[in-house]
Each structure stands twice: as C-alpha cells, then as structure tokens.
C-alpha cells in the first residue's frame, strides 16, 4: 500500500524533474541534480532524520501542512509514503531521464512541423517513446519501497498496521523470542515480491520495445 502510493505520487514528480534535467540548461542544474540523487548516497537514517526536521510537527514545512491542511506526516502512513517516495525518487528520476534522453529528438521535430505544440508532443510522442524506461523505473522503485527500512523507521516509526513496512515487521519479529518462524514467512513474502517486481519490469520492458519496433 505504502509502496504503491509512494510510486503513484512520486512518479509524476520524477517525470517532471527528469524532463527539466534533460531539456533545460540552467544555473542551478548541477545543484538540483545533486539534491535529487542525495537520498541514494546518504545513509537512509540521515534522510529520515532530515525529513523529521523538515516535515516534523515543529519543522518549517510540517507546521505549514499542519496549520493549513491539518495534515500530520510524522508517525503516520502518509509519512511512511513520503519517506518511501523520497528514497526511491533518485531511482525513478534516473531511469526516466535515461529513457527521455534516448528519445530521438528528430521525431519531436517532425511532430512540430505537423502542428504539435509542446504539451501535445510530450503526451503523444515523448512519453510513449520513453514509456519502457518509465515503467521499469516505477516497478524497481516499487520493489525498493517494499524493502525501505531506515528512513521509514526514523520518520514514521514502526506502528503495526499503520507505518510498519515489511522489513520493519521482519525486524520486529526477530526481536521477539520465538519470532523466527514469522520472520522467515515474511522474508519469503519479501523475496517473492521483489523477484516478481524485477521479472515484471524485465517482461514489460521487452514487450514495450517490441511494440515500439526496436
């Protein structure tokens, strides 16, 4: 659930970010690029802590969200979603960007001479052609979300049924005497989901490439 929502919210933003990073050259571009990739190289606990600082009840963004919309992110499912989305954001941006860069600019020129404006081209030419990379990125991000541990436990804690993700549950089970059986069971689930995700992305990628005639 958390993973699906994280990808659902994260993907459009990731596409937009990838689009900006591929198409435009601006002053802050290297900085923005570094910021996007930060969660990938930072220890997840640090990411979680930064989120806590920013989105916490007393954090600058957290206060705004709470006062204006009555939304509390810390220690909630929404918080777990946010943590997951931030952690998988670099994965999605990377794969979307690679596929956007691979789209032949000549095809977009052709679309222009046929009367298609920029949004028309994005929807009908660029995104369909980049779709294999976008989907593969989304699926890998989904699978990664399922395994997200550090940032989630720091930002959203591990509340069973609310913010407890699969690895958190496994970890919790291992802390309890005699919980090995449960941990093994959950680990199998985790393994299956991850494997299924990877196989699915492989298959979809191949199918789409056939459709696109590559």
């Amino acid at each position: 659930m958390v993973a699906a929502r994280a990808v659902g919210f994260g993907l459009p933003v990731a596409i937009l970010m990838a689009w900006v990073l591929t198409r435009y050259r601006f002053v802050g571009r290297p900085v923005l690029n570094a910021l996007v990739h930060l969660p990938m190289v930072l220890p997840p606990v640090v990411t979680g802590w930064l989120l806590l600082i920013l989105f916490g009840v007393r954090g600058p963004i957290g206060i705004l969200l709470h006062d204006w919309f009555g939304i509390r992110l810390v220690f909630t499912t929404a918080g777990a979603t946010l943590a997951c989305a931030v952690m998988t954001f670099p994965i999605m941006v990377r794969s979307v960007r690679l596929s956007l860069e691979a789209v032949d600019g000549g095809l977009e020129q052709a679309a222009r001479t046929l009367g298609a404006g920029w949004f028309d081209r994005l929807i009908n030419i660029t995104l369909p052609l980049a779709s294999p990379g976008i989907l593969v990125g989304a699926i890998v991000a989904y699978a990664t979300c399922l395994g997200e541990f550090g940032a989630v436990i720091t930002f959203a804690a591990s509340i069973p049924g609310q913010t407890q993700t699969l690895p958190l549950a496994i970890y919790a089970a291992l802390q309890v005497p005699g919980g090995e059986a449960k941990a093994a069971e959950l680990s199998m689930v985790s393994l299956t989901l991850a494997l299924a995700g990877l196989l699915l992305s492989e298959w979809i990628g191949r199918r789409l490439n056939t459709v696109l005639g590559r």
């Binding site: 000549g106 020129q109 052709a110 679309a111 222009r112 001479t113 009367g115 298609a116 459709v211 696109l212």
Partner: peptide, 28 residues
C-alpha cells in the same frame, strides 16, 4: 514550426515508431 503549415519530409522519414501507418498519416 507548429504554426508555419510547412510540411516537412526528412531524409530519414522520421515516422513515429509507436503508431501504425494510418495513425502516422493522420497525425498532422
């Protein structure tokens, strides 16, 4: 370009690979 009404035929044809011939023809 999108407001010039100038039809262009490129050396490398540049048909849209994700569309059928008919959809390509109807694009403009």
């Amino acid at each position: 370009p999108e407001r010039r009404r100038a039809g262009m035929v490129f050396q490398d044809s540049r048909l849209f690979p994700h569309m059928s011939v008919a959809t390509n023809l109807r694009f403009g």
